[in-house]
């Protein structure tokens, strides 16, 4: 294959990564933005989303699309419920203290990971894609499903953006993010907003996982790499900034796809990690964020 088509292929793969990463990072960013909680267990919600998707799809017989659609609905709901329990039982009782919540979510990470290992096992299992149409480009054929992942992610991101900026729920969330105490004084049930945002964040991760699981497989250790990548995205984009998160997801996903096709993936990861640490040190508001309040 010539260099041009090769680059196009790398860019398409990068876009798929970006699409999934944007959804997941958006969840992390929402939780951090509104609640000031760094959710280290976010990657495990993603893993649970994929594992539950496999479980649901294996229960449904008939056309693979049926199982996939059922998973797309049920998996985020279950993950959201688990996140809600964790929020009520642990995070709320810690009063959202930043350091204590980080320690607690690290504990949650290990607990969820080991629970998945126990109940689901150490194997990696695929979920059949809902359709197997191949888009024929002049140079190579490309999976239609992967293109649909990009499209669905774009739709979901637009929907989230619409909810955040154009509806009452979004207004309440933004008010809580901007000033917790004043929001409470204006009669907003901050407590419930927190619970909702935490569940929503986990559900976004679960949706991302259901979308990706026909491409990669469900495995109990699959949460760690996306967690680090979404940390990178959220930091580069500016903690709590929605637009920055999207731009950074595109940037990181594309460069991840292109760089790892041409260079050693480990070296690429080392450089990315160091760059992110330097961004946090020298530009804590992120590359695209405005200065923190």
């Amino acid at each position: 294959m010539a260099f041009g088509p090769h680059l196009l292929l790398a860019a398409l793969e990068g876009l798929v990564t970006s699409a999934v990463l944007a959804l997941m990072a958006l969840g992390l960013s929402l939780v951090f933005g509104v609640m000031r909680v760094v959710n280290v267990a976010h990657g495990e919600f993603y893993m649970l989303g994929a594992v539950i998707a496999w479980w649901v799809a294996s229960l449904v017989t008939g056309h693979p699309a049926l199982g996939f659609l059922a998973a797309l609905v049920i998996s985020p709901l279950i993950v959201g419920a688990i996140a809600l329990c964790a929020e009520r039982l642990v995070l709320r009782r810690l009063d959202y203290d930043p350091e204590a919540t980080i320690v607690a979510t690290i504990g949650l990470l290990y607990l969820l990971q080991q629970a998945a290992l126990t109940l689901y096992g150490p194997e990696a299992r695929p979920v059949p894609a809902p359709f197997s149409y191949r888009v024929l480009l002049p140079w190579f054929g490309y999976s239609g499903y992967k293109l649909s992942v990009i499209a669905s992610s774009a739709v979901l991101l637009l929907a989230t953006w619409f909810v955040l900026t154009r509806t009452r729920i979004g207004l309440v969330m933004r008010a809580t993010q901007y000033d917790r105490e004043t929001a409470q004084a204006f009669g907003i049930a901050v407590d419930r907003v927190y619970a909702g945002v935490f569940a929503l964040g986990a559900m976004l991760a679960a949706i991302a996982a259901v979308l990706i699981v026909p491409i990669s497989q469900a495995h109990y250790l699959m949460g760690l790499d996306p967690l680090l990548l979404s940390f990178i995205v959220v930091i580069i984009g500016g903690l709590g900034s929605l637009r920055g998160t999207l731009v950074a997801a595109l940037l990181i996903g594309l460069s991840d796809g292109i760089v790892s096709m041409f260079f050693s993936p480990t070296l690429a990861k080392i450089i990315a990690t160091l760059v992110v640490a330097m961004v946090l040190v020298f530009r804590p508001q992120g590359l695209f964020g405005t200065a923190a309040r």
Binding site: V90, L94, V103, A104, Y110, L111, Q114, L117, T118, P122
Partner: peptide
């Protein structure tokens, strides 16, 4: 039959410590 390893115990210990025994 369970494959629950010591990492699960570590996780549980972290949560319980930070909740009840900081």
């Amino acid at each position: 039959d369970w494959r629950f390893s010591h990492l699960g115990v570590v996780g549980l210990a972290l949560i319980l410590l930070v909740l009840f025994f900081p």
